[in-house]
Design a protein around this nucleic acid. Structure first.
Length: 824
RNA sequence: GCCCCGGUAGCCCAACGGCAGAGGCAGUGGUCUCAAACACCAUCCAGUGUGGGUUCGAAUCCCACCCGGGGCACCA
């Protein structure tokens, strides 16, 4: 051995340390959650990935943040369930299969294995014994089971309706999947089609989904709560019925301003609603058809542009205003939506800008019924919407308050049988059928004689037929429809010829209950063991991307409430708390192929090691903030880890040395750091927590080199605390330190360091003396000094006396023990 | 257009209404080296986007505005 080798090495071999500990952890399985443990339970959940290729920086960030919490809970003595799986049905696999002439499962399961290996090496504290894939028949059998149960409860049903159609993916989309008129997945412009599709009746839970948000406000990110409130879109108003000349059926409208009823000068029905076709006069039928053709030509993108000029067509009929008997024309237009409210409105141009724009365009009358003190909209073409005095409004005249006006008119309408107060939601039912292959087959058989017949429970799972390559090409109907052997079956009821439903389910169905399956992953008697779910639910934290603010999170909440009503769950909300991470960007821009600014996670891990990358991501800033990788320094993180690691080699007291009697100054720093670290983790302030650990490392270094020396027990205490605190972020370095400090693995389960409360009390603090708010002196005082003593001490200070310079003291503010402010 | 979040040192970020700086990056100077890189030690650096207000005292609270980011946007 050369002389150099006997010296303490300056750095450890990152790759070797990773290779060393992985098999040890595999052996120890320190993160296996025991359902029957007497310890208090915590459920740490992070959004499971779609298996597209290998893990990327985004996965690295979210799991690193998430793992801080999970590992913290273990250290604090909880029994922690931290499961992981894959959301493995979906279009990318299907498109890859078409390209490569193979089965979607090939792509899917190969990627899952890649990601699994990467996760393991990345050192996240997942309990792999609970691993699941939503594309496994053993999983989707229960997705089908749930679908059938929902159907039995009237919560899954079919209806014919205009739906969003993505011409690129050749499938329908839920409203939530259409963003700015474009397909959320591929960006193609969405068109409308009239189709019979399956829906979940999420609207039945609209009010509860809204109400429960109040309780989540404290623990969910505000923007998620706001997004859900907006999406549910509750409004209060009234239904008002207008008789139609020459027709028995009235037109019922929904309005939030029934108090402006006297100002209704025309009506508008959605041009694409059945109502328009029913109402139109023979003379105007051609005009309506022509208009409809126009409307259908315009894309969803045009339709949604707010400043588009109003268009419409007169339907050739008149309706009668129920409160004043006035005869008003009925128009059709595309600014009224067929599937909101009743698909028809009363137009009050004076007090609604959209109606006013329309009135102006078609030269329809405008009549003000609320005088708000603003200029008359009849002249300005600026609608007024505020409170004011009612005019031209019969019995409402003279009222000055909107709420009173609304109340009065609703009473009147109800008395006359012409309307009633009502609540309306923007939320629509969840369209769940998809015309694609790689998803859960809908377990329903269509029989000419018996209609919809559910696949019997004992025949679940209804597995997908084997299709691959060109058989999967989108052609407007599901590829399943062409699988003759599969689609043609005997009717379970009558035995006659019947066909299977050939659509598959939206993959959001799969992810609406996966967190329940984790509670009892191998369970064969149902989707999950009710008792086990009781043990673990709700998830104590759900970490993931804010892009799921409405879609996934709303659907999962809906499923949870239905399962509660089915008696299978004791809770009505799935996720007690939530944390959203920001994006990892590069040079100010989202990483993308076209920009050529992608950062490869594998390369980063190879260069700096797992711990340094994890540390960099967690230390970068608050979790919700975006991280610009170009501004980060993984090299700096690695340097810090090596500094921390060197401490463990310098400690010269034996393992087990009691810390009592060690250097008090260092012991105070250790105690304070451990104490604060807990609060910081619980407040998701991981970056600050790490800064505090860095401070502790610096203080320990100083103590070794120029303080109490490496043999002092306080140094051991500090180094051990560093190892445990670092185990939340840098598991390999922490484990290596722990071993060098003379302990058995694993540091991850070592337990949170005990803190002597006496060490948290400072023996002296620095009090600041200000004159006119400017600091003039500092005093070392006891932390429990009285205000009177501190004031006396301050006023006796020479520097203070000089600063006051004989001026009369007008007031002295004392905040013991930290501050005295003298006002002269 | 409406709503939300944020603007602190060259950069990323801290700071119960009480000393503007905890931590890191970069920089500078040293130690080490034949030299360099690495590493280590030391050190410089802003008065908190702008303008008002409240207060003994404001980065922090209030008002207005500017800039950046995000969300919503014919939902009657």
């Amino acid at each position: 051995m050369s002389e150099q080798d006997t010296h303490e090495p300056a750095a450890y071999d990152v790759a070797a340390v990773q290779d060393k500990w992985l098999p040890v952890w595999d052996e120890l399985q320190p993160f296996r959650a025991d359902d029957d443990s007497p310890r208090e339970k915590k459920y740490a959940l992070t959004m499971f990935p779609y298996p597209s290729g290998d893990l990327h920086m985004g996965h690295a960030e979210v799991t690193a943040l998430h793992d801080v919490i999970a590992r913290y809970w273990w250290q604090r003595g909880f029994e922690v369930m931290n499961p992981m799986g894959w959301d493995s049905f979906g279009l990318p696999a299907e498109n890859a299969a078409i390209r490569n002439n193979e089965h979607p499962a090939t792509y899917t399961y190969a990627n899952i294995e890649t990601q699994y290996e990467s996760f393991k090496r990345y050192g996240i504290s997942f309990d792999w014994s609970r691993r699941l894939h939503t594309s496994d028949p053993e999983y989707y059998r229960w997705t089908q089971w749930l679908f059938l149960k929902f159907r039995e409860r009237g919560l899954a049903y079919r209806k014919n309706s205009p739906v969003n159609w993505c011409p690129n993916d050749q499938t329908v989309l839920a409203n939530e999947q259409v963003v700015d008129g474009k397909c959320e997945r591929c960006g193609a412009e969405v068109t409308k089609r009239e189709l019979t599709q399956w829906y979940f009746k999420i609207t039945e839970y609209a009010q509860e989904l809204l109400d429960c948000l109040d309780d989540l406000e404290a623990t969910w990110p505000a923007r998620v709560v706001t997004a859900q409130r907006n999406w549910i879109g509750r409004s209060e108003g009234a239904h008002v019925s207008f008789a139609v000349e020459g027709r028995d059926e009235p037109i019922t409208v929904y309005t939030t301003r029934p108090d402006t009823l006297y100002g209704a000068t025309f009506m508008v029905v959605a041009a694409d609603a059945k109502l328009a076709a029913d109402l139109v006069s023979d003379e105007q039928r051609a005009a309506l058809d022509e208009y409809l053709t126009e409307v259908r030509k315009s894309t969803e993108v045009d339709r949604l542009s707010t400043d588009r000029p109003k268009t419409g067509v007169f339907l050739g009929v008149h309706a009668v205003n129920p409160v004043n008997g006035e005869r008003i024309p009925v128009w059709a237009a595309d600014y009224v939506l067929a599937d909101y409210g009743t698909g028809a409105i009363m137009a009050v141009p004076a007090h609604d800008q959209r109606d006013l724009d329309f009135a102006k365009k078609f030269d329809l009358p405008v009549r003000r019924v609320v005088d708000t003190g603003e200029p008359n909209p009849e002249e300005t073409y600026e609608a007024t919407t505020g409170n004011g005095v009612y005019v031209n409004s019969g019995s409402l005249d003279g009222l000055t308050d909107k709420a009173a006006g609304i109340h009065a008119i609703i009473e009147r309408l109800q008395a006359d049988g012409a309307g009633e107060g009502t609540v309306n939601f923007r939320l629509r039912d969840w369209l769940l059928s998809r015309q694609r292959y790689w998803g859960v087959p809908i377990p329903v058989i269509h029989c000419e004689k018996d209609g919809e017949v559910p696949v019997p429970y004992d025949q679940l799972p209804l597995e997908l037929p084997e299709l691959r390559g060109a058989d999967l090409k989108p052609k407007g109907v599901s590829p399943l429809a062409a699988a003759e052997d599969w689609v043609n079956v005997e009717c379970p009821t009558c035995g006659g010829p019947a066909k299977r439903d050939s659509d598959t389910m939206d993959t959001f169905v799969d992810s609406s209950w996966y967190f329940l399956r984790y509670c009892s992953p191998g369970y064969t008697e149902g989707p999950f063991d009710v008792e086990k779910a009781k043990t673990w639910m709700s998830a104590d934290i759900y970490v993931g991307g804010v892009e799921h603010a409405v879609l996934h999170l709303l659907y999962a909440r809906f499923f949870t409430k239905v399962l509660r009503d089915m008696g299978m769950l004791g809770v009505g909300e799935p996720f007690a708390a939530q944390l959203n991470q920001g994006f990892v960007i590069n040079r100010g821009k989202k990483m993308s192929k076209s920009l050529g600014n992608g950062v490869n996670l594998g390369d980063q891990l190879a260069e700096f090691g797992v711990d340094a990358i994890r540390l960099t991501l967690v230390f970068a800033g608050p979790p919700e903030d975006d991280i610009d990788w170009a501004e980060m320094s993984p090299a700096g993180s690695l340097r810090f880890l090596q500094r921390a690691w060197r401490l463990s080699g310098d400690v010269s007291s034996p393992a087990g040395t009691p810390a009592e009697g060690g250097d008090v100054a260092l012991r105070r720093v250790t105690a304070r750091t451990v104490h604060d670290a807990a609060e910081l983790v619980e407040g998701y302030r991981f970056n600050v927590m790490i800064a505090r650990v860095m401070e502790l490392v610096n203080a320990t270094r100083k103590a070794i080199d120029s303080g109490c020396g490496p043999e002092d027990p306080a140094v051991r205490e500090a180094a051990e605390a560093v190892a445990i605190l670092l185990s939340l972020v840098a598991p390999y370095t922490a484990e290596e330190m722990w071993e060098r400090l003379g302990h058995e693995p694993t540091v991850a389960r070592a337990g949170w360091p005990a803190v002597d409360p006496a060490l948290l009390v400072e023996e002296s603090v620095t009090a600041v003396v200000q004159i006119q708010g400017k600091v003039k002196a500092r005093l070392e005082v006891a932390p429990d000094i009285s205000e009177a003593d501190l004031e006396q001490l301050a006023l006796a200070d020479e520097g203070v006396i000089r600063a006051i310079d004989g001026r009369p003291v007008r007031k002295v503010i004392v905040r013991a023990p930290k501050l005295v402010n003298v006002v002269v």
